[in-house]
């Protein structure tokens, strides 16, 4: 049975900010977009931060656009767990009744939002790449990419509050931090017991992360490389480029997950991307949308990647690369 919510009793736009000692970059993006939408609605922007030993992060959220910050600091919230974070979020939401709630579409953000939507009996839209509001009705409209990004569904929830959405990282721009912005930080006490957290963390590893998403130049290897990246590495060092790969190369253990480009990996924002031996599946090319110039090299003249490239080279990468590298080396020496 769908409970009937008095929709207009819900006010305010909330953003859930993930932190690992510092706020994740998507948190700044949520604050930037959230600020714009809250102003349009004439509602306040509240940031929610859960963790342990949160320090100055509340202040940081205000500098990036929040009017108000709710901080929940508890030893059992150190490190994300579904049960711990869902319990606290559900409690805050039920007490304070926000109208809209945005999460980053990260692994943990999606894990949490999916659970909360059912607990709170409300609608949730996924991986939004555009957000708008209908001021009259207080409605959130989110654009959800479907079929690997080739189609956008514009989705709203007329019933069910808060209106929730996970938001794709790397899409919205943060505001310039402003040290003079004023806001309120409220610390909320919660009751959380160890036995309420049913998943135990056996091991957690955080490897140093090379952010290939923000590299200026990227070479992307597909299955056409046969997993042999030696030539790419040479070219990459010449161009001072990062190396990304398509998903099957990650699955085959050729490169780490952090190098995967595409809808279930990283979106590139580089000025130049050279894509070598990748066919151009829609789940992959959605990671190239924000690239300035795309160069594609592929033996198959009908490969869909050529529809997504500015410079198209039909040819075998193993034949093209050695003489290309030689030429570029000479050109570079000539510059020195």
């Amino acid at each position: 049975m769908k409970p009937e919510w008095p929709e207009d009793a819900h006010r305010g736009l909330w953003v859930y900010l993930e932190q690992q000692g510092t706020l994740l970059p998507v948190g700044h993006e949520l604050l930037g977009k959230g600020r714009e939408l809250a102003d349009e609605l004439g509602e306040s922007l509240t940031a929610i931060i859960l963790g342990h030993g949160i320090g100055d992060l509340g202040r940081e959220a205000i500098r990036y656009g929040a009017d108000e910050v709710l901080v929940v600091d508890h030893p059992l919230l150190e490190g994300y767990t579904t049960d711990g974070h869902a319990k606290v979020m559900a409690q805050l939401i039920e007490e304070r009744k926000p109208n809209i709630l945005l999460f980053g579409a990260t692994y943990d953000g999606r894990d949490l939002a999916g659970r909360l939507a059912v607990r709170l009996s409300t609608g949730l839209t996924a991986n939004a790449t555009r957000l708008e509001v209908d001021r009259e009705k207080g409605l959130l409209l989110s654009a959800v990419p479907g079929f690997g990004g080739s189609i956008l569904a514009i989705i709203k929830s007329e019933h069910g509050r808060p209106q929730m959405s996970t938001v794709r990282p790397g899409i919205f721009a943060p505001l310039e931090p402003d040290d003079t912005r004023k806001g309120q930080i409220e610390t909320v006490a919660v009751d959380l017991r160890p036995e309420e957290i049913r998943c135990r963390v056996v091991e957690r590893s955080v490897l140093p992360r090379e952010e290939i998403g923000s590299a200026e130049r990227t070479l992307v290897a597909g299955m056409g490389t046969g997993g042999d990246l030696a030539l790419l590495e040479e070219l990459a060092s010449l161009l001072e480029a990062s190396i990304g790969v398509t998903r099957p190369l990650v699955d085959n253990g050729v490169a780490g997950r952090e190098r995967q480009v595409g809808s279930t990996g990283v979106s590139l924002r580089s000025k130049l991307a050279i894509v070598l031996g990748a066919s151009g599946a829609s789940h992959f090319v959605s990671g190239l949308r924000d690239v300035g110039t795309v160069v594609a090299i592929n033996t198959d003249e009908n490969a869909p990647i050529f529809d997504e490239a500015d410079v198209c080279v039909i040819g075998d990468l193993f034949e093209l690369l050695p003489p290309l590298i030689e030429r570029l080396e000479k050109a570079k020496m000539g510059m020195a």
Binding site: L124, G149, S150, I151, K156
Partner: peptide
């Protein structure tokens, strides 16, 4: 709860 308000082409990036 969610209603599809509209369907549009994912803005193709012109290459």
């Amino acid at each position: 709860y969610t209603i599809v308000h509209d369907l549009v082409e994912g803005e193709p990036v012109e290459r």
